[in-house]
Amino acid sequence: MNLAAELIGLEKHYDLGPVVVKALRGVTTQFAEGDFIAIMGASGSGKSTMLNLLGGLDRPTHGRYLLGGEDVSQLDDNELSQIRNKRIGFIFQSYNLIPQYTVLENIEVPLHYRPGYPAISAADRRWCAELASRVGLEDRLDHRPTQLSGGQQQRVAIARSMVNDPDIILADEPTGNLDTATEEEIMLLLHQLNREGRTIIMVTHEEPVALQARRRIIMKDGVIHKEDFGQHLPEEIAVQLPA
């Protein structure tokens, strides 16, 4: 089994002056390549902190974070930026698209920050358009986020997360702002990505959504409280997925 990521005794402390908040108190776990993991927990349990560390948005106070076998826990800001650019795909609860950009331009954003800053080629554009059509937005390329529904915006974000072919896709409450029908569409997309072999780590507090993952990690007080395996796909999704 190849590991997409590995956490060894990960701790994160926030120094707030009079008090030091220990958001993570030693998390050790492994994420297998191609797995679909849901991280659950009450607010304050440390799940967001863990996602920030996994996404390279922050550095752990103690412990090691191995991404594809490489220790990225002590990289400087520039190196972390490159890790985020090349190896992590982000999907946020509030989509986080750039409002003044079109669908296509939003998908292109990570390409602007590739190492060496190569120009965006026609092939790059075709690739972005292909990603857009894969999430079902081929006829919305010139729309701006405000002209799209929540579900459509989240699809743009999913297309954007894949543009640099990342090792891990990190999804922070991806269906938190969506209605049930749209939630299903988005989950179907994530399942499809997962079937293609992508590792997905998703933070959620919705039980039905979490149950669709292959593995669940329940956080409590900055440590892993419980783990649970087994995928329970709703029938609507199961019939649409390739075997």
């Binding site: 948005l57 520039n78 930026s81 650019n85 750039i98 602007h112």
Partner: peptide
């Protein structure tokens, strides 16, 4: 600020 955060998350360095 939000846009800056998005760009940073997607790989923009401070210098960018």
């Amino acid at each position: 600020t939000r846009e800056i955060g998005i760009r940073r998350a997607l790989g923009a360095k401070q210098t960018d």
